[in-house]
Amino acid sequence: MVHKNKWLQYTLIAGSLMMAGSATAAVVTSIRPLGFIASAIADGVMPTEVLLPDGASPHDFALRPSDIKRLQSADLVLWVGPDMEAFLSKSLKQIPANKQLAISELPAVQPLLIKGDDEHDHKNEHDHNHNHNQKHDHDHDHKHATDSAMAAENEHNHGEYNQHMWLSPEIAKVTAIAIHDRLLELMPQNKDKLDANLRQFEDQLAQTDKNLVRILTPVQSKGYFVFHDAYGYFEKHFGLSPLGHFTVNPEIQPGAQRLHQIRTQLVEQKAVCVFAEPQFRPAVINAVAKGTQVRSGTLDPLGSGIALGKESYGNFLQALSNQYLSCLK
């Protein structure tokens, strides 16, 4: 009886360990859009989990102890890189290199990167760095406030290149290939499934791209302002016409001079729309647009509410396109 009880105890412990191991085996992505790509490639092989909850922004997120455990137990961690998710840098130093993938560091991504602000390089944007980042409107005329704001921007910048690269269909394809290759290294026994998933992702992406070019072409000449400098890859790919942005970094509110410039441009350039974001709903956008004919819309660069799955990245691009269309048409 004693031996039987011990055997039962060992069996239960072993079963618990197996269940724990299977529950934690996953691809963990920093943000939901990377989860869209990963879940398509890992479908039927392992689950994909997203670290940031809906409504959170990679610009100001802080890891909890439970998040660190998820990272440590993941089979693969997918992130943009240290210039975007600085909060991950320390924790990922403890994780083997073959179990993490930084999109911004992929050799095939390098030629596709655009510099921050290149997509908004209009004559009316030449001084955005000097005006957008003053946190307190009441003292924007004082030199010490300007110096402080400049220091804040330098402290919070996100690298030389625009880090919102998940909004590029070209970079999404490169990312999918990289995920496929890394998972194939980790689990070669799943080659057939991984190969099929990659082919399906590429085919769906090509079809989605073709459809979106068709529906966005009629609004390519419509001018608008976005809340922060996040959409350059998407705008460049689909030939849209942004007039500018309220801020480069959403943690830093634009100052009064910057807002005055934007309001002037809204009137003079007959912008069709100003876009806010669900992660950041600054009252300044409504204040600047008040009394003009400009409509207000919302763009969600993180795909909040879209379920992970084989078609989720295409659904994300479609949803973002619909958000543009609803305000620009």
Rank of each mutant, 00 (worst) to 15 (best):
R182P: 00
R214E: 13
V109H: 09
A102K: 03
S221A: 15
M165P: 00
N162G: 05
K123R: 08
K6H: 08
V274F: 09
K193M: 12
L266D: 05
A56P: 06
H142F: 14
H59L: 02
L112D: 11
T298R: 02
V109F: 10
F61N: 09
A108P: 01
Y324V: 11
Q134N: 12
L302C: 04
L17E: 14
A145I: 06
T208Y: 01
A86F: 12
Y231E: 00
K6R: 15
G309Y: 04
N197M: 08
L325N: 07
F87V: 04
H120R: 15
D137W: 11
E251A: 10
F36Q: 05
E125Y: 04
P65G: 07
H237K: 06
D67R: 09
Q220M: 13
A20E: 14
V226G: 13
L101E: 09
E125L: 00
K290I: 00
A283C: 01
I114Y: 02
C327M: 09
L106V: 06
L325E: 08
V274T: 13
P65M: 05
K143Y: 13
E277N: 09
F227W: 10
N98W: 07
N131S: 14
S57G: 11
A102P: 10
I252R: 14
S296D: 01
P278L: 08
M46P: 03
K115W: 05
L299Q: 05
H138W: 08
I31P: 08
H132C: 07
P301L: 07
H245G: 00
Q189M: 11
Q269S: 15
F280D: 08
T146D: 08
V248P: 03
V50K: 02
S148M: 10
A38N: 06
S296M: 15
I285E: 05
K191R: 14
P278T: 13
P33W: 04
L63Q: 05
L51S: 09
L184T: 04
I114W: 09
L240K: 05
R64W: 02
Q265I: 12
T264W: 07
E85K: 00
A97K: 15
N5Y: 12
D139C: 14
T208I: 11
G255E: 09
I95A: 10
K143V: 01
C327S: 12
L78I: 13
F316G: 02
L184H: 05
A62S: 15
Y161G: 00
P282H: 15
W166Q: 01
D121W: 02
A20N: 12
P33T: 08
V2D: 10
D121Y: 01
A97P: 05
H228C: 12
H164M: 06
G255N: 07
D229M: 14
I177G: 00
G81A: 02
K99W: 04
S168P: 00
L266V: 11
E202K: 09
N162H: 02
H120P: 02
N249C: 10
F280P: 03
A145L: 01
T247D: 11
Q293W: 06
E125V: 06
T24H: 15
